[in-house]
């Protein structure tokens, strides 16, 4: 009934992959009622100098939950506190605070998806678009003993990039890793992909 205290959300946790940060919690269940939630955050500055100041999340104040994309709230590489409360009409629960805080430098960086193709005699790579914070370090080489590997920095995904001109009959390979300047970290390399131009002579 109305007099009962609305329980606070439990089991807050944050999952961050490729600089996309999602806060989740166990939903509050009141039979026959629709519960909403409010999410708020404070950065290290606020917790150091303005500990009473909490800022409503961009997308989740309110939300039907029980999850919230806080990527647009976590805009710097410092520690953040996050809290959630449930609301039912005029009734609000206590706040639940994420236990250890969150710093985006802990995000999981996955190897990027790549596609290696050829455009005539050009070795071409296309990379997964992961957003403006990501650049790619592409390594490519001739699949021959003692062949030297070359490195190319690609500033954004989703655009075919010409790597080099291929000799006919020779296999060429490429792989890539992501780099996020904001947290100064790289992902692991993707699997290498190889391709070959059939043995026609080079055009004059």
């Amino acid at each position: 009934g109305g007099a009962d205290v609305l329980p606070a959300p439990q089991n807050l946790s944050i999952h961050s992959t490729n600089m996309k940060h999602v806060l989740t919690w166990t939903p509050v269940i009141v039979p026959g009622e629709r519960i909403h939630y409010s999410v708020e955050y404070q950065g290290e500055y606020e917790s150091l100098y303005l500990s009473h100041v909490w800022i409503p999340s961009h997308w989740c104040s309110p939300t039907e939950g029980p999850m919230c994309d806080v990527t647009d709230d976590i805009t710097t590489t410092v520690w953040y506190n996050l809290r959630v409360r449930a609301t039912l009409g005029l009734q609000t629960s206590d706040w639940s605070i994420l236990e250890h805080g969150f710093n985006r430098n802990s995000t999981i960086l996955t190897p990027p998806k790549i596609e290696v193709t050829k455009d005539g005699f050009y070795l071409v790579i296309e990379l997964e678009d992961l957003g403006p914070q990501f650049e790619f370090h592409v390594t490519y080489w001739k699949s021959e003993p003692d062949a030297q590997a070359h490195i190319k920095v690609v500033k954004s995904g989703n655009i075919p990039v010409h790597l080099e001109t291929m000799e006919p009959g020779v296999k060429y390979c490429a792989k890539a890793q992501t780099f996020v300047k904001a947290i100064e970290r790289c992902s692991a390399f993707s699997q290498a992909e190889c391709i070959e131009v059939q043995g026609d002579a080079l055009p004059l």
Partner: peptide, 10 residues
């Protein structure tokens, strides 16, 4: 301001 102030900490 929150974003800027936290960047200033860095």
């Amino acid at each position: 301001v929150s974003s800027i102030s936290n960047s200033f900490l860095t």
